[in-house]
Design a protein around this nucleic acid. Structure first.
Length: 690
DNA sequence: TCTCCATGAGTTTTT
DNA sequence: CTCATGGAGA
C-alpha cells in the first residue's frame, strides 16, 4: 500500500472515500494536491477503476502538468489515460465533438480576450456608440461577467452583447467564456449528449474548488448528477479570485446539492507554527468561513517573523536587498526567496534595487507568451494562410509589415466584397480592376503572396514552412527592424520560441497521420489555452510576484511588501475586505521558514509620494501577546546602535525626518515638515533616533 | 496613412 | 510615473 504510506489519517480518510460525493476543506499547505493525486492513484491501482472514466479538473495548465506528473509517479503508465484538464480545455474538447448541434461549425476558432476586445471596439465604431458611459473594455467585462453567471445585461452592454454574439457565430468563433456557456447549453438541451459524457466520466475530481464560478460549478454538477462520484477539494480561506466570478459559496452550496461526506485537512506540512499562528490570527477576522486552525509539528521561532516599518519609500527595497544578501550568506538560494506584492506597480522599485545589487530574479505572471503581439501576428499569418476568408486575421496582418494599406482601403474592399458576394481574393481583383492604384496593387501582391504560401504550406513540414513564411512575408525583417529601434530583441526570441512549439506539433506521436493543417488546428486549441508556454524554468533567482500568481506555491522565505492601508488592503468596502484578508493569508502561508512584512509611511506611487498607514493585516497577524513583546524587545535593542541610513530621527529644530544617505560623520536627513534635505553631523547633540 | 502630442486613467488574472 | 488612446496635422 505504498500509495497511502506517506499520508496522515485525515488524508487517508479522504483518499479511501472513493464512492459518492465528497468535499474536503483543506487548509494551506495541508497536502491538498497530494491527497487528490493519491486518491486518483488509489482508484486506479487499488479499486481497479478504469483511468479513462476519471476526470480531474485543475485551476490552470501548470497545475494540470504537475498533477499528471505526480499521478504517474504513483501509478505509472496508467496516468496518461486519466483526463486531467482545466475546465476550459475540457469544454473545448466537448464542443469539438458536439458544437454543430448549436449551429456552429466543428472547426470553430477560440479567440482570446484581446481579440474579443478588438471585436467589441469595432462594434462600437459600427454602431456609433459613445465610449463615455461604457468603454469597450467595460462593456466586455460586463458581458464576460454575465456569461459567467454574474449580473444582468442592460442598455449599451446588452446592445453590444447581441451584436458581439452574432458576429462571433457568423465568423465561427467562440470566446473563452463561450466555451463554458455553450457546453452548459449542450448539456441542458441535449440530455442524450449529457448522459454520454456522464457515463464516460464516472469519477470527477475538482481541485481549487473555492475558485470555481457559478457556471463552472453548474457544468460539473450536471456531469456528476448521474453517478454522484464527485470529489472536490478547496480552501474557503484561499478564495482570491472573486473579481472574476469565483464563488466561495460553491463550497457551502456543494453540501446542499449533494449529500456529501465532509473531511478537513488541518495539519500543515509547510510552515512553522510561528508562521501559522499569525496566519490563523489574521484569518480569524473573517466572519464568513468554515472554521479551521492550522497547526504544524515544527515550532519555529518568533525571530523568523520580521516586521520592517519604515518611514520613507526608498527604505523598503534597501531593506529587502540587505536581508536577501544576509540570507544568501547564511546558505539560502535565491530561488528560496519570494517577494510578494498586492499590485504590480509595487514591484518596480524593488526590481531596480535587485538589478543594482546584482541579485538575480524571476518575475512571475507578467505577460503571457501568447498575448505578445508578435506571437499573435504569426498565429494570424498561419491562420489566414489556412483560411483566406478569415477577415479577422486578414485585418491583423495585411499591414504588417507596412504595405500602405490602411483602414479606408480595407473598408472599401470589404464593402465591395459584401455587396457582390465575392470571396476576399475575388474582391481584391475586382477592386484592382475597377479602380487601380498603388494600394490595390499592394493588395494584389499580398494576395499572390498568400496563394503561393498556401502551396508551400501543403508541401513543407511545419517548422520549415514557418521559417519560410517569416522570410517571404517580410515579417521577420519587420520585427528585426523594430527590435533594433526599441532594443526589444526578445521579440525575435519569442518568434524563434514559437517555432519550437511547431517542432513539438510536428513530432507528436498522436498527430503523425494528420496533415499540417489538422496538426495546427489541434495545436492551436492546446496552445491558446496554455499560458505556461514560453516561460523559462529552473532559474536560480529571487521570485517577484503578485500574491495571486503564487497560489499553490511555497518558498522558504517570503517578503510581503507594501502592507499599507490603501495598497494592501487596497481601499475596499467591508465585504471586499474579507477577500483582501484572504489574499494576505495566502501570501503569509506561502512561507516555510521566514516571513518579512514591510511597509513605509511615505510611498512613491504613480510618481507621487503619498502618506500611508500601516496595514491592519500586520496588526491582526501579531494579535497575540507574546508577539507584541517580541516586537517591542527588538525595538529597544535597535535604539542603541548608531544612526544610519533609513533611520527615523527627530531634530531639535527641524522635527521628524529620515536619514536618506550617509558619508562618514555626515548624514543627510529628509525632514517631514518642510520636505527639506539637510546635511547634519551624525552625532550632533540636537539629533536623536526616534 | 502615419506620426506626434495632449489627455486620462491607473487592482488582482486565467482561460 | 507609464501606458493606451484619440485627435490633429503632415
Amino acid at each position: 500500500m505504498s500509495i497511502l504510506e506517506n499520508l496522515n489519517e485525515q488524508q487517508i480518510a479522504a483518499v479511501k472515500q472513493v464512492e459518492g460525493p465528497v468535499i474536503v476543506f483543506a487548509g494551506a499547505g495541508t497536502g491538498k494536491t497530494k491527497t487528490l493525486t493519491s486518491r486518483i492513484a488509489y482508484m486506479i491501482s487499488e479499486k481497479n477503476i478504469n483511468p479513462k472514466n476519471i476526470l480531474a479538473i485543475t485551476f490552470n495548465k501548470k497545475a494540470t502538468n504537475e498533477m499528471r506528473e505526480r499521478i504517474s509517479n504513483l501509478c505509472g503508465e496508467e496516468a496518461k489515460y486519466v483526463t486531467i484538464s482545466t475546465i476550459h480545455s475540457f469544454c473545448a474538447r466537448i464542443l469539438r465533438q458536439t458544437i454543430t448541434k448549436l449551429g456552429y461549425e466543428k472547426n470553430f476558432e477560440i479567440i482570446d480576450d484581446d481579440d474579443a476586445n478588438k471585436l467589441i471596439n469595432e462594434l462600437y465604431k459600427e454602431l456609433d456608440l459613445s465610449r463615455k458611459y461604457f468603454s469597450p473594455k467595460a462593456a466586455y467585462n460586463i458581458i464576460s461577467a454575465y456569461k459567467n453567471g454574474i449580473g444582468e445585461l442592460n442598455g449599451v452592454p446588452k446592445q453590444i452583447y447581441d451584436h458581439y454574439q452574432k458576429s462571433l457565430k457568423e465568423n465561427n468563433q467562440v470566446d473563452f467564456d463561450d466555451l463554458l456557456v455553450l457546453t452548459e447549453e449542450i448539456f441542458t438541451s441535449f440530455p442524450d449528449v449529457l448522459e454520454h459524457f456522464q457515463n464516460k466520466y464516472q469519477y470527477i475530481l475538482v481541485d481549487e474548488f473555492q475558485d470555481t464560478n457559478i457556471i463552472q460549478y453548474s457544468i460539473i454538477k450536471l456531469l456528476a448528477l448521474k453517478h454522484q462520484n464527485i470529489f472536490v477539494v478547496g480552501d474557503d480561506d484561499q478564495s482570491i479570485y472573486s473579481f472574476r466570478g469565483a464563488n466561495v459559496g460553491n463550497m457551502y452550496q456543494f453540501s446542499k446539492d449533494f449529500d456529501a461526506k465532509l473531511f478537513k485537512l488541518t495539519q500543515n506540512y509547510r510552515s512553522t507554527n510561528a508562521i501559522l499562528k499569525g496566519s490563523n490570527n489574521l484569518i480569524s477576522h473573517n466572519l464568513k468561513r468554515e472554521k479551521k486552525e492550522l497547526y504544524s509539528e515544527n515550532p519555529g521561532s518568533l525571530q523568523d517573523i520580521v516586521i520592517h516599518d519604515a518611514y520613507y519609500y526608498e527604505d523598503e527595497p534597501r531593506f529587502i536587498v540587505d536581508e536577501i544578501k544576509k540570507l544568501v550568506r547564511n546558505g539560502y538560494d535565491y530561488k528560496d526567496i519570494a517577494i510578494l506584492y498586492r499590485t504590480n506597480v509595487i514591484s518596480r522599485n524593488i526590481e531596480l534595487a535587485l538589478i543594482e545589487n546584482g541579485i538575480p530574479y524571476v518575475i512571475y505572471g507578467g505577460f503571457a507568451f501568447l498575448k505578445r503581439k508578435e506571437i499573435k501576428d504569426v498565429i494570424s499569418y498561419l491562420k489566414f494562410i489556412m483560411d483566406s476568408e478569415n477577415i479577422f486575421h486578414f485585418k491583423r496582418i495585411i499591414n504588417l509589415p507596412a504595405r500602405g494599406i490602411g483602414d479606408k482601403t480595407i473598408e472599401k474592399l470589404l464593402e465591395g466584397k459584401e455587396a457582390k458576394g465575392l470571396t476576399l481574393f475575388e474582391a481584391i481583383d475586382e477592386l484592382h480592376s475597377s479602380s487601380a492604384s498603388s494600394k490595390t496593387e499592394a493588395l494584389v501582391n499580398f494576395k499572390n503572396l498568400i496563394i503561393s504560401l498556401k502551396e508551400d504550406f501543403d508541401t513543407m513540414q511545419l517548422p520549415d514552412f514557418y521559417e519560410h513564411m517569416l522570410n517571404v512575408t517580410g515579417y521577420l525583417d519587420y520585427i528585426k527592424e523594430q527590435a533594433l529601434e526599441d532594443e526589444e530583441t526578445h521579440r525575435i526570441d519569442n518568434i524563434q520560441e514559437f517555432k519550437s512549439i511547431l517542432v513539438q506539433l510536428e513530432t507528436r506521436p498522436d498527430l503523425q497521420d494528420l496533415t499540417s493543417k489538422e496538426k495546427l488546428l489541434v495545436g492551436f486549441d492546446d496552445v491558446i489555452l496554455d499560458e505556461t508556454l514560453g516561460t523559462k524554468q529552473d532559474v536560480n533567482g529571487v521570485v517577484l510576484s503578485t500574491v495571486h500568481s503564487v497560489k499553490g506555491l511555497e518558498f522558504k522565505v517570503v517578503f510581503v511588501t507594501a502592507l499599507e492601508e490603501g495598497i494592501f488592503p487596497s481601499l475596499k468596502n467591508d465585504s471586499e475586505i474579507e477577500e483582501e484578508r484572504r489574499i494576505a493569508y495566502v501570501a503569509f502561508t506561502r512561507a516555510k521558514e521566514k516571513v518579512y512584512m514591510t511597509c513605509v509611511s511615505r510611498r512613491l506611487i504613480y510618481g507621487r509620494v503619498v502618506l500611508n498607514q500601516k496595514s491592519r493585516f500586520i496588526t491582526e497577524y501579531i494579535a497575540s501577546q507574546d508577539w507584541k513583546e517580541h516586537l517591542e524587545e527588538k525595538k529597544e535593542a535597535a535604539d542603541n546602535t548608531p544612526i544610519k541610513t533609513g533611520d527615523k530621527v527627530v531634530h531639535f529644530n527641524f522635527g521628524e525626518g529620515i536619514v536618506v544617505s550617509e558619508n562618514n560623520a555626515i548624514i543627510q536627513v529628509l525632514f517631514d515638515k518642510d520636505h527639506s534635505l539637510r546635511k547634519i553631523l551624525r552625532n550632533h547633540p540636537s539629533l536623536r533616533k526616534k
